[in-house]
Design a protein around this nucleic acid. Structure first.
Lengths: 146, 146
DNA sequence: CTAAGATAGTTTCATCTGAAACCGGATTCA
DNA sequence: TGAATCCGGTTTCAGATGAAACTATCTTAG
């Protein structure tokens, strides 16, 4: 038995990370899923679109920024455009590319969900000491550089 | 524009956690997926089964330990039993319950995959200072208590 | 200019997933 | 005891997912 050296899951880092990450993402998603009929992928697409508003981002750029695959992004966009939360025009000069923008309705959703997400983050961080908060940022910078 | 206060995804904790967690889990999963025809859910079930070898765990107990839902566990078990990596008997005294055990073949897989997973964890931790490693454990204890 | 390749984005298909319905078996309580 | 309920586990169904094929456009080399 003992010579099998089983993994102690409850101390195994990748496992704990996945549990934590799921719990947090779920908690936030629950808040907007029903209220706005918005999936997590859709929200991420909107968030990225909002963040880089200056330039008219294309679908591929959004995919790169979200680390989601382009199929997921394409589908999320189909729904977002359908719901008139995102507008899509063709790029002049390259008709393959699309130029995406949040519509007024899109911004409205964004402006409700973003603070809500931030509140979750705050309440999560509130459980850590100032030192731990700093450490966590440093750790993430090392383990998952942008 | 500026008054919309978009989320800075690259600093947003839940987002970074999810990226990191996905990358790590994927990296590990890639190693056993093809080699052993083993899905991540199946591996988790095996790991839990291995860890609590003493008692003959039931499917529900495995589900509770892995934070996966019972449907996922049920399906993983169907495959694991089919591949003769896990044995399943009925519990005497409660015929609803099943008693699960890793078979010899199951242990063999486990004994290959577990060190491999641990190696990943080590190489991940190696990028952090001793202080950061300690901090990370403390943080996880607070944010995702077992 | 044209053929061969690259790139943006969508569609298809086969698989995975989770909620809810379901099926015994066990338990409670009148 | 037996009706009502609870519980472990599986099945169903409807939606999500990702790899690979596909369409349309753009770029490059000859």
């Amino acid at each position: 038995m003992a010579d099998h050296a089983p993994l102690e899951l409850e101390r195994f880092l990748p496992y704990r990370l996945s549990i934590l990450s799921n719990r947090v993402s779920q908690a936030i998603a629950r808040e907007y899923q029903d209220r706005f009929d918005l999936s997590m992928t859709e929200w991420r697409v909107m968030a990225v679109r909002a963040r880089y508003d200056c330039d008219g981002l294309s679908a591929t750029q959004v995919a790169a920024r979200t680390e989601m695959d382009k199929v997921a992004v394409s589908r999320a966009l189909t729904r977002l455009v359908g719901a008139k939360r995102v507008s899509r025009r063709a790029h002049d000069g390259d008709k393959r590319r699309s130029v995406l923008r949040l519509s007024a309705a899109g911004w409205k959703v964004h402006d409700t969900v973003a603070p809500l997400a931030r509140a979750h983050e705050r309440s999560m961080l509130a459980r850590l000491s100032a030192d731990e908060q700093r450490a966590l940022q440093a750790i993430l910078d090392k383990l998952a550089p942008v």
